[in-house]
Amino acid sequence: MTIDGSYGEGGGQILRTALTLSLLTQKPFRLINIRAGRPKPGLRPQHLACVKAAARLGKAEVSGAERGSMDLLFVPGRLRPGAYTFDIGTAGATGLLFQTLYLLLAIAGGGRLILRGGTHVPMSPCFHYLAEVFLPVLSAMGFSARLEIRRYGFYPVGGGEILAEIGPLETLSGIRLEPPFSPEATSVLSVVTSDLPDHIRRRQAQRAEKLLREAGLACEVRLESVKSASPGTFVGVWGQDEIKRIGYFALGARGKPAERVAEEAVRPYLETMRARASVDEYLADQILLPAALAEGQTFYVTPKITRHLLTNAWVISHFLPEAKIEIRGQEGRTGEVIVNGTPIV
């Protein structure tokens, strides 16, 4: 099949979802117009790492896997369990590489991933989002894994490393994440690298805690100082409501006040609760693929129907026409997602 990489959101997610589903369904694909509308179109090191890693797990035949390529042919082979190490070579997101590979390795029979690159970088799920938000919801669906951060990696150098120990997947089950989200517990994590002033992490934490308490939410606050090849800071805020999870993370930058970093994490957390959603908009996109592969129905409410979500549904429909994905609502507004999966495990 041929997939237009410029459709919808037009980013790397089209490629990552196609790679996973090609290997799981054994359907080859050609991806054209890869990231055509982006300032730097075509495959970047982050995307090439996903292609090469997926090809290695599944003994795939690939052509067009070159930096800047806008046309890729991928012919899947047989998945193999085992231990794999992949180094992106830049500050490319290890979180996005993990999300390309985790289902493949689980369905193959399990194994271990060591992924090197950026662990907390822009435009991607950071390590703590995976560990505290994404993985607990996947675990409720039947997925088993343990994540560990060995080194932090911030932009521009990267140099981080995460370990993922993934168990064999016997079955994926749909879940109902009913709104509203009412946290039993809210956690705040304020982190700075050891080469930055210590007052930054204190100010980040104090501002986050103040905003949450003003909203009537108690929270557990943790402060950490870590080593990394590049200086960096971040604030994470996440909550738990039975099997439901919501989380937001914000990165520091030169010239950005510590208080603003905290605000960028806390405010969307509070807005998602006010929207009476049951997941955050990032999780809404990220669990769509496992939901489409699960037995039974999955239901959740997103605070915002994003173009990422709509595009992901479009790509999934190419490989899994039997899966029924219904997204109720308008782009940019609160909406319901209902998925009747087609299990392949």
Score class of each variant (00 low, 15 high):
311 T>L: 01
321 P>F: 10
296 G>R: 09
321 P>V: 08
277 A>V: 09
277 A>I: 11
273 M>P: 00
292 A>L: 08
306 T>L: 03
293 L>F: 07
304 K>T: 09
285 D>P: 02
303 P>V: 12
266 V>P: 00
309 L>G: 07
273 M>H: 10
289 L>H: 06
326 E>K: 14
295 E>W: 10
292 A>M: 07
328 R>Y: 10
305 I>T: 12
269 Y>T: 04
303 P>A: 13
324 K>S: 13
296 G>K: 06
302 T>M: 09
296 G>N: 08
275 A>Y: 00
318 H>A: 13
267 R>A: 14
303 P>K: 08
287 I>G: 00
317 S>Q: 15
318 H>G: 05
281 E>I: 01
282 Y>E: 07
310 L>N: 07
299 F>M: 11
274 R>E: 15
316 I>R: 04
269 Y>H: 06
277 A>R: 03
260 R>K: 15
262 A>D: 04
261 V>S: 08
291 A>H: 08
269 Y>V: 02
289 L>W: 02
308 H>R: 14
276 R>H: 13
275 A>R: 14
319 F>W: 03
285 D>N: 13
320 L>T: 03
309 L>A: 14
320 L>F: 12
271 E>K: 14
297 Q>D: 11
304 K>M: 14
319 F>T: 03
260 R>V: 13
329 G>A: 07
278 S>W: 11
